[in-house]
Computed example of a mutant assay.
Amino acid sequence: MDVPELLEAASLLVPEETATANDITVRDIWDYLVDDEWEIALGLLEELGGARPLPLAFWEKLAEAAEQLRLERSATWCHWRCSEIRNGVIRADLTLRPAADARRTKPIPAAGVLRPMWDIGLLSPTGGRAVSVAALWVENTLTLEPGGRATVRLVPLTPSHWTHVQPGRHITMHEDRTVAGTAVVLEVHRPAHALT
């Protein structure tokens, strides 16, 4: 499929009543598609995808369109959303330890490349602390500085480890044995196999 076909197919997966915060709807996006404004249509479809849960096929089509348009960040975001659907997502308020108090002295890249370990209350068979890995996406910024605070999205690599995690729970981030940051869980969305 080429870009217009992918965007048209993705737009057909969005319920008509869905609108962005700026009241943009699928009908508005069709106007951009007709005028070959594919990059704008892609961006607006990404926004519509944030308004409500949409099927895996929607995000797969957007990722392919973004790749064809060579929009790397959009493609990365759409692939990330595919991972959220497959593995679930935990949104949390994360505060990193200051550089003077932690091993991390450089900012965390926002776009889901870091896969830290998380203490989410699991115990090992011997009774010690067990950690679980989750990829991390920092919302609304390109990096998170040491000592900084931001809302993050976590995609568990082993979703079954995270079934007990609920909003309000305090969890800790580790890049080694020391605590790199602390977070409070804001939202939990389980894997959405039914939306595929």
Rank of each mutant, 00 (worst) to 15 (best):
A19T: 09
T20F: 03
T20M: 10
A21D: 02
D23K: 02
D23S: 06
I24K: 02
I24P: 05
T25M: 00
T25V: 03
T25Y: 03
R27S: 09
R27W: 07
D28S: 00
I29K: 06
W30E: 14
Y32R: 12
Y32I: 10
Y32W: 08
Y32P: 03
L33Y: 06
V34A: 09
D35M: 12
D35W: 05
E37D: 07
W38N: 15
E39V: 12
I40Q: 07
L42T: 02
L42H: 06
L42W: 07
G43D: 14
L45H: 02
E46M: 05
L48W: 00
G49E: 12
G49Y: 13
G50Y: 08
A51F: 09
L54F: 15
L56P: 13
L56A: 02
L56D: 03
L56Y: 11
A57V: 13
A57P: 08
A57Q: 15
F58A: 11
W59T: 00
W59C: 02
L62P: 01
A63W: 09
A63F: 10
A63Y: 03
E64F: 03
E64W: 04
E64M: 10
A65P: 04
A66S: 09
A66Q: 13
Q68R: 13
L69S: 12
R70K: 15
S74W: 00
S74H: 02
A75N: 06
A75V: 12
W77P: 04
C78T: 06
C78W: 02
H79Y: 10
H79S: 04
W80G: 03
